[in-house]
Simulated assay, not measured.
Amino acid sequence: MAEKNTLGCQKIPMAKIENEDDFYSSFSNRRETLYKKASDMIGKYDIDVGITIFSPSDNPFSFFHPTIDVVVDRFFSPYT
């Protein structure tokens, strides 16, 4: 068997991202990944999802399925 030329999956230590451009870029990538995973869960399990996150510059981003009213009503209604 041939020897691998790559290092494979490496563990990255948790550290604050100091470069501001990298920080915003990382946030955008993580936000898109979170939205994609939520969309996949909606398609696979037919669930109601609500996500609200704030960017490093305090801009709000939200994702609700099917609507914000349905998700909030479901959250505050007692379990039946």
Rank of each mutant, 00 (worst) to 15 (best):
residue 76 F to P: 06
residue 36 K to R: 12
residue 63 F to V: 00
residue 36 K to S: 04
residue 27 F to G: 05
residue 20 E to F: 08
residue 49 V to L: 01
residue 68 I to L: 08
residue 63 F to I: 00
residue 11 K to N: 14
residue 70 V to S: 11
residue 45 Y to M: 07
residue 1 M to N: 14
residue 74 R to G: 14
residue 73 D to L: 09
residue 21 D to R: 15
residue 57 S to Y: 07
residue 69 D to V: 14
residue 62 S to Y: 03
residue 28 S to G: 08
residue 24 Y to R: 12
residue 45 Y to Q: 07
residue 68 I to C: 05
residue 70 V to L: 06
residue 12 I to N: 03
residue 11 K to C: 10
residue 75 F to K: 10
residue 79 Y to I: 11
residue 66 P to S: 02
residue 52 T to W: 01
residue 67 T to A: 05
residue 7 L to N: 10
residue 44 K to D: 06
residue 16 K to L: 15
residue 32 E to M: 10
residue 69 D to N: 11
residue 80 T to V: 08
residue 75 F to N: 07
residue 61 F to C: 01
residue 37 K to A: 01
residue 56 P to H: 05
residue 26 S to Q: 11
residue 32 E to S: 13
residue 7 L to D: 10
residue 47 I to D: 05
residue 33 T to M: 11
residue 7 L to R: 15
residue 30 R to D: 09
residue 48 D to G: 10
residue 11 K to W: 12
residue 35 Y to G: 02
residue 15 A to H: 08
residue 48 D to K: 14
residue 7 L to E: 09
residue 33 T to N: 09
residue 67 T to Y: 01
residue 31 R to K: 10
residue 67 T to F: 02
residue 19 N to F: 05
residue 49 V to F: 02
residue 57 S to W: 04
residue 65 H to K: 06
residue 73 D to Q: 11
residue 50 G to V: 02
residue 45 Y to E: 09
residue 66 P to Q: 03
residue 38 A to T: 00
residue 65 H to G: 03
residue 50 G to S: 00
residue 47 I to S: 09
residue 67 T to H: 05
residue 56 P to I: 02
residue 41 M to E: 06
residue 66 P to Y: 02
residue 52 T to Q: 06
residue 52 T to D: 03
residue 8 G to A: 09
residue 78 P to M: 03
residue 79 Y to L: 14
residue 79 Y to W: 12
residue 40 D to K: 07
residue 34 L to E: 01
residue 24 Y to G: 07
residue 63 F to W: 00
residue 28 S to T: 10
